[in-house]
Nucleic acid binder design. Structure first.
Lengths: 195, 195
DNA sequence: TCTATTAGTTTCGTTTCGATACTATATGAC
DNA sequence: GTCATATAGTATCGAAACGAAACTAATAGA
């Protein structure tokens, strides 16, 4: 078996384990695995990416289904909706305190422990390679990369060191750079490097 | 955001893309995503691991559900069942020619292409790191590693260069070493290295 | 103003899923 | 041997998740 296929097998398997782990955790909150996935996503995404459409793109399920899940999560008081001020078709989702509490315990402690056992340089390198893989998949397939603003070609910094998004022209705080964005495109022109 | 969490995000996202890609392909065969996942698994696993229980463990869904899926796949002529000769409770599943034809087109061409664009040493290194991650997850969580016999501590070789599994005492052909096994445990004592 | 597009919702029927109870075989104690 | 227990797999049932398609509402562009 060749190396690329081996890597895909590993990615597939680890992906399944992540789902299994999430399923286990979701049971304790009386949620489905997908619902927990939505909460996790909302905890990581920036303010351009917290819409039902972005969620459905990220998770790969249809917007009709997502709409149902969101209704349920809202009824449980885990997320709240807010209409966009500029485009009144758009809805922004955010975690309530209660929803935020659930995501704070993730990723699971045992996964963190397993990662701590690995060499730091190895982790960094593997992360870098997967990032490249995602870039290539974006080029080949048009998949959205959903990565951090930090590595996005739209990220701009002025001479005062303030950041903004070249696409939306919105200002970005330093902490925004670590959030994932539905508009992310690989390559970082004049901006900060990861790390 | 720290490096480990970043890696988990990437693994999560790539796992989702793999599912999305599989879902797209499954539609063309009028199958569900899970059914295609079962076929893929059967194409990769060895003869100790082609049971309904192993499938359900690998995919993380209950055996009752798997039982139904298997019944459906059998009725479509994609897999066939065979009762184990030594333990008549156990059933072995295998792909029919028709089922095998479906898995042969996977992983998808565009994924292969994306991987080819990456540096070979990088791929090898990343593969190695993910393998270690899986080992650690096994230690921490008891997750099954489901890796190739090649890297299993149960693998034995005699002086004639013939392989066998120290757990089942069954002989293993060279091509068996590249198959994934439900009994896999990390660490390779006296046996061949990967590559 | 008219048309096309986009974000999100609703509805409906299908499929999938987990839980539970079940059968059949195997194992181990005695 | 016999009986209890464990294990592999199946059957059944109700809940839910899902995709498809039709729909509403807001926007964009001609």
């Amino acid at each position: 078996m060749d190396e690329p296929e081996l890597l895909i097998d590993l990615l597939e398997h680890i992906g399944l384990l992540l789902r299994t782990e999430r399923r286990r955790q979701s049971a304790t909150h009386r949620l489905s695995e997908v619902h927990l996935a939505i909460l996790d996503y909302l905890a990581h995404c920036n303010r351009f990416s917290n819409t039902p459409l972005a969620v459905s793109t990220y998770l790969g399920i249809t917007k009709g289904t997502i709409s149902q899940s969101i209704k349920l999560l809202e009824s449980k008081g885990l997320i709240k909706k807010e209409t966009d001020k500029d485009d009144r078709r758009v809805i922004h989702l955010s975690l309530t305190r209660k929803g935020s509490a659930i995501t704070r315990s993730r990723p699971a402690a045992n996964w963190r422990k397993a990662l701590q056992r690995l060499d730091n340089d190895d982790l960094r390198h593997a992360t870098q390679v997967l990032r490249q893989l995602l870039d290539q998949l974006q080029k080949e397939n048009g998949y959205k990369t959903f990565m951090q603003c930090r590595s996005c070609r739209h990220l701009l910094a002025n001479e005062a060191g303030a950041y903004r998004c070249g696409l939306t022209q919105q200002p970005l705080k330093p902490r925004d750079l670590g959030k994932i964005c539905v508009e992310h495109e690989p390559g970082s022109p004049g901006a900060a490097e990861s790390g």
